[in-house]
Structures are given as C-alpha cells and as structure tokens.
Nucleic acid binder design. Structure first.
Lengths: 345, 345
DNA sequence: AGCGATCATGTTAACGATACCATTCTTGGC
DNA sequence: GCCAAGAATGGTATCGTTAACATGATCGCT
C-alpha cells in the first residue's frame, strides 16, 4: 500500500507536474522566515534594505506568485471588488465598468464581474455567490430589486457603491444624478427651442422610465403633454430607433420633438428620418441620452444629454478605495448632467 | 512613518457588528457536522433526504453564505476564471466578454476581469496578480506579449483559452479564425465586385495588421496594390473614420474600394462621404469588419466581415468548462468568418 | 553606563472550508 | 442468519497565508 506521507502525493492538484512555489520555499531560499517574505511583499518598509533585497531576489528567482486566496482568508481582506452590471453590451455601462476597473486595478484591487441582466430572476443567486467571494467592496450599476438580495447586501457589512441609481438606494454610497431631473431638463430645453408637440421613445427599464416621468412632468407644468410614447425592451438598439419612426409619424405631425432614452435609439430615428426624406430638425427634432460616440459622429450631430459614464465609474472606484483605506469618503456624489445641443434640435 | 494600524479591534473584521455565519454554525443548528453541511451544498446526492432538508433549512434560516475563499483554498478549485481583455470600450470585445461571462456564470464560475490595454507595460504585473487569485482557467483576448508574462502563464498549469488570436498562441486552447484569411476574403470579394483601386484604413494593433497583410497579399497576387493606407491608434472610432476621408480622396479617385479594420471606422467613412455628396458605393465602396449593429443600421447598410464575437466567447467558455470537468475539449476551434454583402460594396 | 524606545525578525495560531480516511448503519444474497 | 458491499456521516489534518504577540538587537539620551 503506497502510504502518502507528506508532500507530493496526497492532495495533488492538476495533472501536469507543476511546481507550486510557496511562501515557505521562498523563505528557505532567502534564509528567512515566511512572515518576512510576506512583509517584503506587503509592507516592505518594515524590513531592512539587505533582507528586503535578499527576499525579492529569491522571489524572482523562484518565480513565486503569492496565493492571494490564502492571503485573503488569513487577512480577511480579499482585495477584490464585485461589480454587478446589467450588461456590458451597452456602451454606457461598458464605459463605466472600464474606468471603474482601471482605477481599482491601479490601487491593487481586482474586479469580479457579475452580469445581472435586466430581470430579477436569479439576482439573489448571483449576489449570494459573489458575496461568498468575500469582496472588500461592491459596485451596483442600477438597483438590486429582489428583497432577499438586498437583505444579503445589507448584512454583508462592506461598502457598496451604487451608480446609475434610480432613487432607491441599496448601498451606502451613491454616485449618480437625478434621472427625473434629466428628463425635466430635456423638456425645458425642447420647450425653450420652441417645439410644441412632443414624443418619447424609451427603454423599458426603471432608470429610463424615471427620465420619462421627469420629462412628462415638466411638460405638464407648462400645459404640454406627450403625444407619442413608445417603450422598447432593453437593451436599446439603433435598429429599434429606426423602427420607431413609422408609429411616430402617425401620431406626431411634422415639427415635433422626440426624446429618446438612448443615443442609440435617437441615432436610429435620425437615420430613418433622413431615409424618408425628412429634414432634421426642421421636420423632426431629436434629443438622445448618453452622449455616445455615435451621436457626436452622426450627421446631423445629435443633441443629447451628457452623463459621463467613465467619470462615474472612476468616482465610484475612488470612493470605495477611500472607504476601504479608512479615509473619509463622501456619501453622495452628484455628477453633472448637461444638455449638449448639437444639430438635431 | 507611523505604521498604520487601521483596524481597532483584533481580527474582528469590519466595524459594524456583523454576524459572520460559518459552516460550523449551520452544522450546530442542524445537528450535524461541518462536512455534512459542505456536502449538502456541494454534493447533495451523498446525503439522505432527511438530513439534506434539515441542513438546507438551517442554511436558509441563518442566512449562511459560504466562504468561497476558504473553500477555494481547501479544495484547490477556485471556481473563478480570469479574463484578460484589451478593453471593453470596444463593442466587439464587450460582446465576447458578455457571452463568456454569462456562460461561465451558468456553470457556477465567476469571472475576474483584467483590462490589459493595448500596451505591454504592466502586463506582467497584471498577469501575476491575477494568477495569484488561483483561477481554474483563463481567457486571453488577443495575445500576451511580454515574455515574462507568457512564462508565468505557461507555468500556471491551468487551461488557457485564447481568442481573437493573432497566430502566436500562448494558450493551449484556441478559438478564433485566421485574420490573414479574413483580409484575403475581403480582397477577393472586392475584386470580384469589379473594383480596381484599393485603400485600407486600419487600427494599429497586431490583429488588424494581420488582416491588412492578408488583404495586401491577396491583392498582390492579382496584380493590384494598396493605393491608400492609413493606420489609426486603437481603439477605433467613428470619428476617426470620418476624418480619414480627406486623405483618402486625395489618393484614391472615385470608384475605389476601402477596407476598414472596424465597422466603426467604416461607418464614419460612409457618413462623411455622404456629407460630401459622394454616393456610396458608386463613388466609394466600403467594407468594414466586425458586423456591429451600427453597420447593419446604417444607411446604406454596410458590407462587412462577420465574426461572431458572442459565439467566440461562448465557445471559449464551453471549452474551458469541459476541460475543467475533465471532459475532452477540442484544442482548436475555428469560427466561421463570413463576408456579409450589404449596400456599400 | 544603563534603560526604555524603536527596529528587525521570528513563533504560533488562526482564517473557514474540504480531502481523506474511518466509522457506523443498512441492505441483500445465499 | 451471516457476511460482504454499500450508504450515510464524522474526525482530523491541511490548504498557504497573515495577525498577534514575542524576542533579540540597536540606539540615543540622561
């Protein structure tokens, strides 16, 4: 009977003969104790120059890669942050996630990605698994709806940053803007430009719907209403914008103005309008949302609402980092929302 | 410099009075041992109905969230996969990552995101940290260039899937297509349509350049050459496409055909051409790459090379999962590349 | 010169889970 | 009715690292 004493046999991992270098191997090579190696990598200031050099040499020579899983278990700091995003197929969220991840990466954190989709189906499942990773912090893009999931988050005891929020804060850290306010601003802008008939094409998700309500309310205050309204299933696409024109023209005579909940929808609308020989904005004015590249590059260039997704991601990351470092961090950050008037209104 | 003793209490964790429920707590509540709880969650088949029910009740009641970090350390399986992507600001990669993540998520894996950018600067740093997370597998979108980083990867002993590759495989699992072949196919297509003057606008990254070379070679074989060539810094944008027209028109008289390394560049070119009163494709034919939504929705719709980014992501995920489950998985998968002829050529 | 303060390093014991092997309790075949 | 084979469960060691505390060396100051 082969008795698996101590080393290689027993809990052997992957098939190929790997050489898992552990911290003790490095320690032995450098003639120090394990904790000294740990300190060389985490708190080098605590060591003498000579020891530090010796350890780092050994690290390099052996090709030591610290096992961060073990480190996390022991120190109770995983240096990981979970980001839950509805989708990254949408450029707005992608941009936000990109800058969020980059900023955290520079500070030594890794990001674990959770894709929520737009339904609450397996939200609890997702949140639970991800919390099991023991993240030091969390980013929620958009709200978490399932009650069970929210409870879990609240009990997790980690800082949670929420961005693109829709006004029902789960986290203790908000980076965002008022969607209602944005809708109002668009209404004000369009009324100011002299338009008198209005339509809206909106994605059927909670944040877009808030903007819709803001839009409607501001119009109403001045005696206007929404003559045409169309909800489309997320994620928004250019094609869906093109397809919206038909219905729109039936309800809205020439000279109206339409607010689209995404630049993608707006771009589609403009493209289709031109194909039909309409002149934008004379026959149809359009305002998008998001200030995506396509709007800037379109002809005519799209009037839109600019919210800096990258900025929000970076802000959220910075706040989390501050919070995790014990530094004070603001609880609420409002990112400016700006109407960029270009050629379609 | 005062050593920053940030935490006041001992190893008590986060400030707010949390109740970290451990597996032993659940075990006690259910009147079983810890290992039984573990089995209830991981291999429920091994338990009797009655015990299973009892344990799951306790789990729910206590709101137990398994510490996956500890589990990973003990079992040497992290159930995490690292994805290294140049950027997710580009829709192509975003799409790939989206489907990759979704597929893995459904199989119980989490994805750790690494953003590489297009430079090799801190590539080794990034790879090292991420390997330290003990991922079970890895996805490389595009190649890893730093020699040190490649060595690390090779020694990691985990399956590595590489997609969007440029022909210098790091991993042992390839999902992709021939970029050279794609360039050739475009050349063949355009020549077949009767064009005789050619231009190219390409992103300055290795994969796009391979397509360029394929394009050039195929043209050369039939006695043609590239009359206009422009390299633009990644990531590609619509605006950059628009800006390219000026130079292009100087070198390429009306009736030429241009291959763009991205649908974004191609879309910009088409938009600008129409602004200048050119007719597409009569005055200028354009072929893009990537089959993005914008190409489909553009007017005139863009001829392009379709590579299914989502499909590739899903394939890569499936292969990794198979490999990790001990099932056989193909080493090389070639995804079909198809020229979609629409209205711009 | 003595002595507390500071620096540099080491020892020990977790962190929370699972692998391995052992143990008890069933079961069925002859 | 007895024994081998399997089902159900538990005990113990361990995964690789870091926190907490301990120790010895160094140093400046009265």
């Amino acid at each position: 009977m082969p008795s698996n004493d101590h080393s290689d046999a027993g809990r052997s991992g992957k098939p190929p003969g790997r050489a898992p270098v552990r911290i003790t191997d490095v320690a032995a090579a450098a003639g120090v104790s394990a904790i000294t190696v740990s300190r060389a990598l985490n708190t080098p200031d605590l060591l003498s120059k000579a020891t530090l050099r010796r350890v780092l040499t050994a690290v390099k020579q052996l090709g030591y890669v610290p096992n961060l899983t073990a480190g996390a278990l022991s120190s109770r700091r995983s240096r990981m942050v979970v980001a839950i995003v509805p989708t990254i197929a949408s450029p707005m969220y992608a941009e936000t996630l990109q800058s969020f991840t980059s900023t955290l990466s520079a500070a030594g954190y890794n990001v674990v990605l959770g894709l929520g989709g737009f339904d609450d189906r397996n939200e609890e499942q997702l949140v639970t698994t991800l919390l099991g990773r023991q993240p030091d912090g969390m980013l929620l893009v958009g709200a978490v709806h399932s009650a069970a999931a929210r409870r879990r988050l609240a009990q997790a005891g980690i800082p949670i940053a929420e961005i693109w929020g829709d006004g029902s804060p789960d986290g203790d850290l908000q980076v965002g803007f008022s969607h209602v306010g944005a809708g109002e601003a668009v209404a004000t802008h369009l009324m100011g430009r002299g338009y008198e008939r209005f339509g809206i094409i909106s994605s059927d998700d909670s944040r877009a719907l808030e903007r819709l309500e803001g839009f409607r309310a501001a119009l109403g205050r001045r005696g206007h209403d929404i003559a045409f309204q169309r909800l489309v299933a997320p994620p928004s696409t250019i094609m869906e914008g093109r397809r919206s024109l038909d219905g729109l023209l039936r309800e809205l005579p020439r000279g109206g103005a339409v607010f689209c909940s995404s630049d993608l929808l707006a771009a589609g609308l403009v493209i289709e309008a031109r194909v039909r020989g309409l002149e934008v904005p004379r026959d149809l004015a359009v305002c998008g949302f998001g200030d995506l590249e396509i709007g800037r590059a379109l002809e005519p260039a799209l009037t839109t609402v600019s919210v800096d997704g990258a900025e929000m991601g970076q802000m959220a990351a910075r706040c989390l980092i501050a919070r995790l470092s014990g530094d004070p961090a603001p609880q609420h950050i409002t990112v400016p929302v700006e109407i960029i008037q270009r050629a379609t209104s």
